[in-house]
Write a protein that binds this DNA or RNA. Structure first.
Lengths: 340, 340
DNA sequence: ATGAAAGCGCTAACAT
DNA sequence: ATGTTAGCGCTTTCAT
């Protein structure tokens, strides 16, 4: 924090204005002076002071990410999905010189101001988050992983961007995997449809049912915990005894399903197949290992940060710029290897 | 970011200096004016601008934590231990108005300057980390979770503090638990002793052996991965067939040991007992569930941040201030429930 | 194409 | 006990 822009200016024999311009590619400067400045800067080991820059521009270099599920209070849930997403986002932000801070769901506006947050990523937004409101109101930049509900979209142009998986395609992948593994009566277990991913999965399951003429019962759980999942699966199987397989959108759903199914004396995958819509390391290591769809959380995190970076200086007006879509990959494991 | 110190000063009918002093508890100010200022500030919804404050003081409000194991390249390893530690530290920092950023092991000095890092937490330091060197050299504040090797301790007084478990006590808890569960020939599997926790565990195991007159073979793995652990355990059992139980300092060691032991046709816990020195959710959910020592990572993270906060303004000279010691708790699970 | 100068909001000497 | 003032390092009009 020692060598400042003035030192660079002195060494390059120019004014500090010129240095600033050269470094930020702003004003019109001759190639030669620009190079001279750049050389002087690197000779001196010049590094910009983020506080000074931020003070002037009103933008701190800090990026924020809100990753904990709505309703949850922790910062990062203990799941490899969120862990990988966070690691990807952090690495990408850091390599661009931006510190990334994890924020809880509950926040006051003053806290946001005090932290100096103007650019953030919100995972699975439902639209009512203080952080979302704050950024939309104050003209900050917001990237969501998952879509904001339509009615929450801002009326006026804003710096809002989406990064997402194609949840419809994820659901199709899951259901057709069950089908091709020989299961005939799939059911779906999902989470609150305030989150776009779950909403889209349900829609696609309905479409699938309509298309194939095969009823696909759909159950929901409120919170992603195993005991809630067990109750939901038990109720589902009681009501629909013909069901022979499950597409669950959560890790907890998959683990809970295994335990309920076994309790009924059925064998996974022989009698009952399970595929999860979001892969985690726990699913890979559980027994039986559970087939799941890898949503590439690392890529989601990285893409979100890149979008934040890309939403550069000039006020952008493309509210509904096309979302960045990240692919998914089916991981075939034991829970759907039907022996029969 | 609108209402500034000047607005507060105007409303309270004082100078901006007085406001600054009142807000930071600096100068000598009458109770009445202080209250008047505080009232004016809260009426106006005043929130300090961290960039401005930081620019002046040369301290950014940003805290950093380096959590990935030495040698590893990721930011946060996928383990509930690190996850909980990070959540605890983040929450504590945030509640004091400090954003906390996760940093990788590999860093250049310019990156640290560019980010404006002056206060950081380093988990399991070996002393050679650029971040450690940087903070020691530049007079920043450093809190480590685990101790720095003695030879790495700075000569001159510095702002260095320790938060730690009592690893000796952890090892004793583990070994005596095995003993009281009826196992007679414990072995130890540990990780590189450049990390103080592992070093202390090894020392304590030696002391235990000396005290009880019972040989306690010690094996080491370089990296915390399961296949390395399997090889190490296999070699250990080949060399010491009398061994009937294992105290392993890592999750990978425990999982690897289960698989090797079973492969030999032994039953856990009947023929062989296993206790891990660091509890994680994977150990709780694996089968058999594995007894482990909960190091209270959440408390470690919180305590480290509090130490950082506490290392206030005035240059501190107590290099070797007493470490903050966090307790541990044995979680008894199936891997040490000897049936015989 | 380049430079002078103002000022972002705050803290800390230094008055009074 | 309170106020005046000088910057911290940078960006950004506005001149030249």
């Amino acid at each position: 924090m020692r060598v400042s822009i003035a030192d660079v200016a002195a060494r390059a024999g120019v004014s500090i204005t010129t240095v600033s311009h050269a470094l930020n590619g702003k004003g019109r400067i001759t190639m030669s002076t620009r190079e001279r400045v750049l050389k002087a800067a690197s000779d001196l080991g010049y590094v910009a002071n983020p506080n000074a820059a931020g003070l002037r521009t009103g933008q701190s270099s800090l990026f924020a990410i809100q990753i904990s599920p709505s309703g949850g209070n922790s910062l990062v849930p203990n799941s490899s999905y969120f862990n990988d997403m966070l690691n990807g986002a952090s690495a990408e932000a850091l390599s661009a010189g931006h510190p990334l801070v994890v924020l809880p769901r509950e926040l006051t506006e003053s806290e946001l101001i005090a932290l100096g947050i103007t650019r953030a990523i919100v995972v699975d937004p439902i639209g009512t988050e203080p952080l979302v409101q704050f950024l939309l109101e104050t003209g900050g930049t917001l990237v969501t992983i998952g879509r904001l509900p339509d009615r929450m979209l801002p009326q006026s142009p804003s710096r809002l961007f989406f990064v997402d998986n194609d949840a419809h395609a994820v659901a199709r992948t899951a259901l057709s995997h069950l089908q091709s593994a020989g299961y005939r009566h799939p059911a779906v277990l999902t989470s609150p449809t305030s989150v776009s991913f779950f909403r889209d999965c349900v829609d696609e399951a309905r479409a699938w049912a309509a298309r194939t003429g095969c009823a696909v019962p759909i159950a929901r759980i409120r919170n992603e915990n195993e005991s809630a999942a067990r109750r939901a699966v038990a109720a589902l199987l009681d009501a629909h005894p013909e069901v022979d397989s499950l597409f669950t959108t959560s890790e907890a759903g998959a683990i809970g399903a295994v335990s309920v199914v076994r309790q009924r004396g059925w064998v996974v995958p022989g009698d009952f197949g399970i595929v999860a819509g979001n892969d985690t390391s726990l699913l890979r290591y559980s027994s039986p290992s559970i087939s799941a769809i890898d949503l590439h959380p690392d890529s989601l995190g990285r893409a979100a940060v890149r979008r934040l970076l890309l939403a550069g200086r000039p006020p952008v007006t493309d509210t509904d710029a096309a979302p960045t879509v990240i692919g998914h990959t089916l991981r075939r494991r034991d829970s759907t290897r039907r022996s029969s």
